[in-house]
Structure formats: structure tokens, C-alpha cells
């Protein structure tokens, strides 16, 4: 990464209107707020169905915004990109697709994979809150082990999502397998890092993919004041690894020097409450994050 953005470098201009329809502590709206500060006004936003589409009703952006269907954001953007090129109207416009984890990892996977494989020049920003929050918090392909959602409730027999941690759909790795020119992970807990990554993505020719860990107080049953704290804790406990991938190389950001115990992250969230007494499950999680951190750093 070249020059790092400092807080004093940030524009005071807001590209989203105050008083959006997001919940207090919403990570999704922060993701877009930061991304638009990085990109500026010469941007077209395509928004796959999800919380963001509803939020944007009131967050009237200062850039064109098109809420499309659940699964076709990258396909719509393919058409926009090709049309702007052939009409000679691209004019340095940033093309940004914003979607949640459901729209990305699940129903929109084909559309994303196709658009990336074809090499369209656009930025894809996934705000991952680890379930279908817009429909009330159902389990998605990125829901972590143990999380209680409305379709993986804590029952007397099965308690929360029981698919093993390592089986969770890892979209950044899928994007790396596509030879995507720029892939990064980010967290709303580290806004300057997120902004740097969005800026970098805008300079890359071809597709860029940024996966943003994005807290959801309503879905995770957490206090809104903990949203940013949780987004930091996820990184500090090793649940989320922040990295950039370009030219076949991976660099890491904000790696925990001394990893915090996962319990610190879990105990603030209602969705993991039932796990707190389960020492075996927590030990497994510690093992998982430790192993993944080691693996990531080679």
C-alpha cells in the first residue's frame, strides 16, 4: 500500500444524507459512507437487494444509486461498464457494486463470478454481517459456527449454526482463485484501512473485490455502541484477518501482535450467548482462529 490515509486527509463532505433508515450502530451504512469518501462524486453505485437498499431510501446519496435485484448487481454493472466504454462516457467514473453477504456469497455468486471472470473494471464491496439481516436474520453462507439466527435457532437438540467453522464460504479466497487483480478484506473497525483499500481498488484496472466485516446490532443481538468495538475485536481475536492481495502477493494489516481470547468477542453478542458455557466449542474456535492465522501468514 502506498501513502496511507490519515484522518486529517479525509474529506468533510458526506455523500450520504443524514438520517438514513439504518439501525443504530449499523455497519453496512458505515461501509458505504467510508467507501464514498474514498471514491468521491464521480461514482455510480449499484446496490444489490439487502439492508442497504432499504437504508438508501432516506440516505439519498450525492451519487447515482441504482437498487437492482438480489443477485444481479455485477451483471447490471457489466452492462454499465461496457456501455460507458462504447459510448465514450466512462470519464474516470468509479463503478461500485455494494451487496451483503447473502447477495454475494449465496444468491449472487454466479453473477459475481461471471463479471469478475470477464474482467470488467469495477469495484465490488461486500458488507458481511454474516446472515440475511434485511429479512430478519436468517443463516447465510458466511454465518459462522455457533451463531444463532432465525433459521439456525438455539433448540434443545441443535444449538445455532452447526456447520464447522472451516466450511464457511470464504468469498475473498474464491475471488483470489479467479485471479482477481485486487482482493482485500476490511473491517468497519478500521475505517482508514477500509478507505485506503477502496482507493487502491479504484486505481486497479479490472475487477476489485473488498470484503468488509460489518457489524449488525439487530442481527447479532448486541448493543449499538459495541459495533465498532466488535469490528475491532473480530480482528484482534483472529476471526477476521485483514489483508490485501495483488500480483500474487498477500500483505496483512492490523494483525494482532498478541491475539485476544475469542471469548471477548463472543460474550458481547447475543447470537453466541449459548456457547459461552461450552468450553469445548470455545476451545475449537480458539484452535480454528489460531490455525488460520498461522496458515495465512505462511
Amino acid at each position: 500500500m502506498t501513502k496511507k490515509t490519515k484522518i486529517k486527509d479525509l474529506t468533510n463532505e458526506e455523500f450520504l444524507h443524514y438520517g438514513s433508515l439504518s439501525c443504530a450502530g449499523c455497519g453496512a451504512i458505515l461501509t458505504l459512507r467510508h467507501a464514498l469518501k474514498a471514491l468521491g462524486p464521480n461514482t455510480i453505485v449499484i446496490n444489490s437487494t439487502g439492508c442497504m437498499a432499504v437504508i438508501m431510501q432516506m440516505a439519498v446519496p450525492k451519487v447515482p444509486h441504482f437498487h437492482v435485484l438480489f443477485e444481479n448487481g455485477p451483471a447490471v454493472m457489466s452492462g454499465i461498464e461496457q456501455a460507458l466504454d462504447i459510448l465514450g462516457k466512462r470519464d474516470g467514473t468509479n463503478l461500485l457494486v455494494v451487496a451483503g453477504d447473502g447477495g454475494t456469497a449465496d444468491i449472487g455468486m454466479g453473477s459475481l463470478s461471471g463479471a469478475v471472470e470477464r474482467g470488467h473494471d469495477f469495484i465490488y464491496l461486500c458488507y458481511d454481517n454474516e446472515s440475511y439481516m434485511n429479512t430478519g436474520g436468517q443463516r447465510s453462507g458466511t454465518t459462522p459456527f455457533g451463531a444463532a439466527t432465525s433459521t439456525t435457532p438455539v433448540g434443545s437438540v441443535i444449538k445455532g449454526e452447526n456447520r464447522p467453522m472451516e466450511m464457511r464460504k470464504d468469498v475473498p479466497e474464491i475471488m483470489i482463485a479467479h485471479n482477481t487483480p485486487y482482493v482485500a478484506t476490511a473491517s468497519i473497525g478500521y475505517p482508514l484501512d477500509l478507505i485506503d483499500k477502496v482507493k487502491k481498488a479504484a486505481t486497479v484496472r479490472g475487477p476489485s473485490y473488498i470484503h468488509v466485516f460489518s457489524s449488525c446490532p439487530a442481527g447479532w443481538r448486541t448493543e449499538p455502541r459495541y459495533s465498532v468495538k466488535l469490528a475491532k475485536l473480530a480482528v484482534q481475536t483472529g476471526f477476521v484477518i485483514l489483508f490485501e492481495y495483488e500480483n500474487g502477493k498477500r500483505t496483512f494489516q492490523h494483525l494482532p501482535k498478541k491475539r485476544k481470547p475469542v471469548r471477548e468477542y463472543l460474550e458481547l453478542q447475543g447470537r453466541f450467548k449459548h456457547l459461552l458455557g461450552d468450553e469445548e466449542a470455545i476451545a475449537k474456535m480458539e484452535e480454528f482462529v489460531e490455525k488460520r492465522l498461522e496458515l495465512a501468514q505462511g
Binding site: 449499484i46 447490471v76 457489466s78 452492462g79 454499465i80 461496457q82 456501455a83 462516457k89 454466479g110 453473477s111
Partner: peptide, 23 residues
């Protein structure tokens, strides 16, 4: 420009996108 999409769902989606910037 021919966009050789990965499904018909995406074919028409791309058409809508292209059309909405004036093509």
C-alpha cells in the same frame, strides 16, 4: 460490445444496466 454472460438472468441484467447509461 458483446457481453458473454454466465446466465440469461445476467444477460438481461447487463442489458438493463447498459440501457440505463444510454446504450
Amino acid at each position: 460490445s458483446i457481453i458473454r454472460v454466465e446466465s440469461e438472468h445476467s444477460a438481461l441484467s447487463a442489458v438493463v444496466g447498459a440501457s440505463l447509461v444510454g446504450a
